[in-house]
Design a protein around this nucleic acid. Structure first.
Lengths: 159, 159
DNA sequence: CAAAATATGTCAACATGGCTTACGTAATTT
DNA sequence: AAATTACGTAAGCCATGTTGACATATTTTG
């Protein structure tokens, strides 16, 4: 059985690079999280709540693409440990808007640090057009139907 | 509590794009895998064995960065179901070299198809320099100590 | 040749974080 | 008043990661 070859299937180069890059990219925060008894699920929640203080639970579910039961278990731990707090929505009091506490912000920054360094180091040798290429490539990988939503979420100055 | 802002922390744009891109990138094969009762762990094994027929178990462990116990459970299922076969190493008979069967190759190609299309579509609008930028960026994200190993693995025509 | 190291497999026990199904409550909309 | 919405929660299942311990065959080394 012959190996799958890069010559016949040049996209494999990107596929495998994406695998290795992501493998190492997500490994950064693990050491920090372990000190708190948290996992990657906590990381994702802490990150997005810090990026969008006051977001709804439903927003978080849509971003993470997990069920509310999966989210609930992990979110509860973050609330119980004082990293995130919930406030009723001012217009719609059914909502439980999510905010980081001071500890939640500090945790978010600690998790962000090594990833920022990794990204900055990867970008440093790239020309502006090459950096634009990296951005375009990543955006192009996102599901077409999700692309605008993701772009808005990333770029929007939260109201 | 103010949101974390892109202006202050421009790397966040890349961090979040990487998260969304990978989320959708790995979603492609799931539907196929489900038909076989397999998960993403099976996918990774099938992929690398098809890319490097005759690889050792230890090589696979080093690539995937998991324990042999984790690998063993999943690998056994692939062998029992006839997707991968093991042959003793010709020089070192302690080794169990891993080869895809015809069914294993077919599965690998089915899993590869949608990911190739996704990558090709993402690259299509990019200039050559932009494509180079995407490659450089991904390589730069990989741990410095792993970068050469990953590059060799990806680029090497297997002996 | 005997001893040590290597390649691999396996068993047990446990943790994380997904999932489905089902039901409950409060608030809002129709 | 009824229906819908936003959210929570409980039970149980599953995939896939972990550690620790031990077994077997083979190769390498002293």
């Amino acid at each position: 059985m012959l190996p799958l070859s890069l010559e016949e299937r040049p996209e494999i180069r990107y596929i495998e690079l994406l695998f290795f890059a992501y493998r190492d990219f997500v490994s950064d925060p693990d050491a920090v999280l372990a000190k708190f008894g948290f996992g990657r699920a906590h990381h994702r929640i802490v990150h997005f709540v810090n990026r969008h203080p006051g977001m709804r639970v439903a927003d978080l579910l849509d971003i993470l693409k997990i069920t509310k039961q999966s989210l609930g278990r992990v979110l509860k731990q973050l609330i119980d440990n004082g990293f995130i707090e919930q406030l009723p929505g001012p217009q719609d009091r059914r909502q439980r808007l999510l905010y980081p506490t001071a500890a939640g912000r500090a945790l978010s920054l600690r998790l962000l640090g090594p990833q920022e360094e990794r990204i900055a180091a990867a970008l440093e040798p790239l020309s502006p057009e090459e950096r634009a290429g990296a951005l375009k490539f990543l955006r192009g990988i996102i599901n077409a139907g999700e692309r605008d939503k993701a772009a808005t979420l990333i770029e929007s100055p939260p109201r």
